[in-house]
Simulated scan of single mutants.
Amino acid sequence: MDDLLLTKERKRVVVAMSGGVDSSVTAALLKERGHEVIGMTMQIWDYSRFEAPDGETFGTCCSLDDVYDARRVAEQLDIPFYVINFEDAFQQAVIDPFCDAYFNGRTPNPCVLCNQILKFERLLRKARELQADYLVTGHYARIEFADGRYRLRKGLDDSKDQSYFLFTLTQEQMAMVRFPLGDMTKQEVREHAERLGLRVAEKPESQDICFVPDGDYVRFLEEERGAGRKDGDIVHVSGKVLGRHRGTYRYTIGQRRGLGLSWSEPLYVVAIDAEKNRVVVGEKRHLAAGELHMEQVNWLIAPPVGAFRAACRIRYRHREVPASVKAVDGGRVRVVFDQPQTGVTPGQAAVIYDGDEVIAGGWIA
Results as ranks from 00 to 15, higher is better:
residue 163 S to R: 03
residue 101 A to H: 03
residue 211 F to I: 11
residue 346 P to I: 12
residue 297 V to D: 06
residue 24 S to W: 11
residue 149 R to V: 06
residue 334 R to A: 11
residue 65 D to P: 00
residue 142 R to S: 00
residue 365 A to P: 00
residue 216 D to L: 09
residue 312 C to N: 01
residue 41 T to Y: 09
residue 199 R to V: 10
residue 146 A to N: 05
residue 245 H to I: 07
residue 216 D to R: 13
residue 212 V to D: 01
residue 108 P to W: 10
residue 138 G to D: 02
residue 238 S to Q: 08
residue 312 C to V: 14
residue 58 F to R: 13
residue 334 R to G: 00
residue 276 K to R: 13
residue 1 M to H: 07
residue 349 A to F: 05
residue 190 R to M: 03
residue 177 V to D: 03
residue 13 V to L: 13
residue 161 D to G: 07
residue 89 A to K: 13
residue 170 T to C: 07
residue 196 L to V: 07
residue 147 D to T: 03
residue 352 I to K: 04
residue 48 S to Y: 09
residue 18 S to M: 08
residue 202 E to Y: 15
residue 319 R to F: 10
residue 102 Y to Q: 00
residue 112 V to P: 03
residue 89 A to Y: 11
residue 185 T to W: 06
residue 316 Y to W: 09
residue 298 N to I: 07
residue 129 E to F: 10
residue 139 H to G: 00
residue 359 I to S: 02
residue 82 Y to V: 11
residue 144 E to H: 02
residue 170 T to K: 09
residue 198 L to M: 12
residue 301 I to N: 01
residue 308 F to I: 04
residue 362 G to V: 07
residue 327 A to Q: 14
residue 17 M to N: 09
residue 341 Q to R: 15
residue 314 I to D: 01
residue 294 M to H: 01
residue 237 V to R: 07
residue 247 G to Q: 03
residue 56 E to D: 06
residue 54 D to E: 15
residue 137 T to R: 09
residue 292 L to I: 04
residue 287 L to R: 06
residue 161 D to M: 01
residue 189 V to I: 15
residue 145 F to R: 09
residue 137 T to E: 07
residue 321 V to P: 02
residue 363 W to T: 14
residue 143 I to A: 02
residue 114 C to R: 02
residue 80 P to C: 09
residue 250 R to P: 01
residue 194 E to M: 06
residue 155 G to R: 04
residue 122 R to D: 04
residue 156 L to G: 04
residue 19 G to Q: 11
residue 48 S to H: 14
residue 178 R to Y: 04
residue 1 M to V: 15
residue 39 G to Q: 03
residue 335 V to W: 00
residue 51 E to Q: 14
residue 6 L to M: 14
residue 270 V to Q: 05
residue 192 H to L: 02
residue 291 E to Q: 13
residue 136 V to D: 08
residue 343 G to E: 12
residue 298 N to S: 09
residue 219 R to D: 10
residue 23 S to D: 05
residue 135 L to A: 13
residue 19 G to C: 09
residue 132 A to S: 14
residue 188 E to P: 03
residue 177 V to W: 06
residue 165 F to E: 01
residue 40 M to C: 15
residue 361 G to L: 06
residue 160 K to C: 10
residue 69 D to Q: 12
residue 291 E to M: 11
residue 106 R to P: 02
residue 29 L to E: 02
residue 364 I to E: 05
residue 59 G to T: 00
residue 303 P to E: 03
residue 28 A to T: 02
residue 93 A to H: 10
residue 146 A to H: 05
residue 242 L to Y: 02
residue 24 S to R: 04
residue 163 S to C: 01
residue 62 C to M: 10
residue 197 G to K: 08
residue 151 R to Q: 12
residue 96 D to V: 14
residue 296 Q to P: 00
residue 35 H to E: 08
residue 155 G to Y: 06
